[in-house]
């Protein structure tokens, strides 16, 4: 099984060298979801992850002629993605403002987590942030994250496309992040628990 996969991958890489977009797409589908998951664990922020993934795959395409399948493509692409993500992480680690943003990103992204942490203050902050969203965006966030509806259901319910739902969610998380950074810069908040969660 593993050898077959390896063989197919070598074939895809070979086709990509001959400018095959189809082969590139297949490689993208094989690796993008798992790399997304991986980088999100470190960066906590979809936008940063997407920027890095875009760079990674554009590099793969632009340097397609230099890729040597025998050297192990998986290790190669993982290393490249990790490297870029760690660079960014290190930059964040050195900058107080970015640190706060990282924390806020984590809050906004893990809104939906089932865990119940009875931290009333945090729950209040998050709720405030959600209230500050534009109504439609708030509705999409609540339906997807709190009511646990699928994107498709929400899209149909609101008469919009699935990609609009996902874009609105990313914007909502960004709004929440910005709201928290803007309103809770003070040090007392810094002592709040880092893992972020919502319970109301």
């Amino acid at each position: 099984m593993r050898e077959k996969t390896h063989f197919e991958e070598a074939k895809l890489l070979e086709e990509m060298k001959q400018d095959s977009i189809a082969a590139f797409n297949q490689l993208y589908r094989n690796y993008a979801p798992i790399l997304y998951q991986r980088l999100l664990r470190l960066l906590k922020n979809p936008e940063s992850v997407e920027e890095i993934l875009q760079d990674v795959f554009l590099k793969i395409w632009n340097k397609r002629e230099e890729i040597i399948p025998e050297k192990g493509f998986k290790a190669f692409i993982y290393r490249m993605a990790d490297h870029m993500a760690i660079d960014l992480f290190r930059k964040i680690a050195r900058d107080k403002a970015l640190q706060l943003e990282l924390w806020a990103a984590s809050v906004s992204f893990y809104l939906h987590t089932e865990e119940h942490v009875f931290d009333k203050e945090k729950a209040r902050i998050v709720q405030e942030a959600i209230q500050s969203l534009p109504p439609k965006r708030r509705e999409i966030l609540i339906q997807c994250k709190l009511e646990d509806k699928s994107y498709k259901e929400v899209a149909e319910m609101m008469g919009i496309s699935v990609s609009t739902v996902s874009n609105q969610l990313v914007s909502a998380m960004k709004d929440i992040r910005e709201y928290i950074v803007k309103n809770y810069r003070e040090d007392y908040l810094i002592s709040l628990i880092f893992i972020a969660i919502l319970s109301f």
Binding site: N25, A32, P33, Y36, Q37, Y151, S163, S166, N167
Partner: peptide
């Protein structure tokens, strides 16, 4: 080892991102 999370979200984002990337390549 890590339990995958947010698969729905990730798949959707990955699909959208693919369009952006292809737009830069094609």
């Amino acid at each position: 080892e890590h339990t995958p999370e947010n698969l729905d979200f990730i798949q959707e984002r990955v699909d959208l991102l693919q369009e952006d990337i292809l737009a830069k390549i094609i």
